[in-house]
């Protein structure tokens, strides 16, 4: 196969992705420097960096950045640690293990919107929710989760969806761990933690990297869960960058400012991506 043909075969994916990235990106950058308000189409013209300034000085800006990072970090830690624990727990033969498996991974297949609705209405509602019922039963004052701990609630909701993803990957990976190695370690009298750190964890290094990468991509732009539950509030307590831009663009009708926010989001994503590309780059080379 010659060079030209190689290039020809690669062209569709490269060109399409380039277009998919460059056209909107350049439009976003262009919009971010002009006055563009859907409700006031007569106002127009180049405004330089004032949209950026407006977005940047929005009191919600720093909280949104911070919330984005807290959200991504917490969910990653929870899902990997809990995922590892459950995967190790279930990595033994027992009856109806297949059913337990199916129960554990199911939340991953539930739509984020539905997931958020279940938690909002049936779990966390301060009057009818099951958490409130449990609290009342044991004589504790029920908590209005989404109003009092909005960010924590979102973290719980997202973790419930994505821990099963980690479990699914880790438990399948564990099955490919050499049984003989495990037995040899047992015979050598290696304790549980020694086996975990010297055998299990190294074996799971690549799956863990992959779980981190895929999840980070999805969590940086979490939208549906916030849209359905807290709407970013109360105040800005559960507004992440994606939601802030959304509220500027589609609720504020200000395309210019929203585009400036989009540029900020892209910069943040790229900072995170640099770490990620290193991580996955190593895996590619391996």
């Amino acid at each position: 196969m010659n060079r030209t043909l190689t290039r020809l075969l690669q062209a569709p994916s490269v060109v399409l992705l380039l277009l998919w990235m460059l056209i909107p990106l350049s439009m976003t950058i262009y919009f971010s420097t002009i006055r563009y308000h859907l409700l006031y189409p007569e106002r127009s013209g180049f405004v330089g960096f004032s949209n950026y300034e407006f977005f940047y000085t929005d009191p919600a800006f720093w909280p949104a950045i911070l919330n984005t990072l807290i959200l991504v970090g917490s969910v990653l830690i929870i899902s990997v640690v809990l995922g590892l624990a459950v995967a190790v727990l279930i990595d033994r033969p027992f009856r109806f293990r297949g059913i337990a498996r199916v129960m554990l991974i199911s939340p991953f297949f539930i739509m984020p919107t539905v997931n958020a609705l279940i938690w909002k209405n049936m779990m966390m509602n301060p009057i009818y929710g099951l958490f409130a019922v449990v609290a009342n039963t044991i004589g504790v004052e029920p908590v209005d989760w989404l109003a009092q701990f909005p960010l924590l609630s979102i973290i719980i909701i997202v973790s419930w969806q994505w821990t099963p993803f980690a479990i699914l990957i880790f438990m399948t990976s564990l099955q490919s761990l050499d049984q003989e190695q495990k037995e040899a370690a047992l015979l050598d009298g290696a304790g549980f933690w020694a086996r975990f750190f010297n055998l299990t964890l190294p074996h799971l290094a690549r799956p863990i990297a992959i779980v981190l990468m895929i999840q980070m991509i999805f969590h940086l732009s979490i939208f549906a869960e916030i849209f359905v539950t807290t709407g970013g509030g109360p105040g800005t307590q559960s507004t992440n960058l994606a939601f802030l831009i959304f509220s500027q663009a589609l609720q504020g009708f200000d395309v210019g400012v929203a585009s400036a926010g989009g540029v900020f989001a892209i910069i943040l994503a790229n900072i995170v991506a640099i770490f990620l590309v290193r991580l996955i780059g190593k895996n590619l080379a391996a």
Partner: peptide, 24 residues
């Protein structure tokens, strides 16, 4: 390898950042 990593990095562009252009 660079092309593949670049492709993956496009996945990290937040959708919301390009919503307006695509919508328009």
């Amino acid at each position: 390898k660079d092309i593949l990593l670049w492709m993956l990095s496009t996945k990290m562009l937040p959708a919301v950042g390009v919503l307006m252009p695509i919508y328009l």
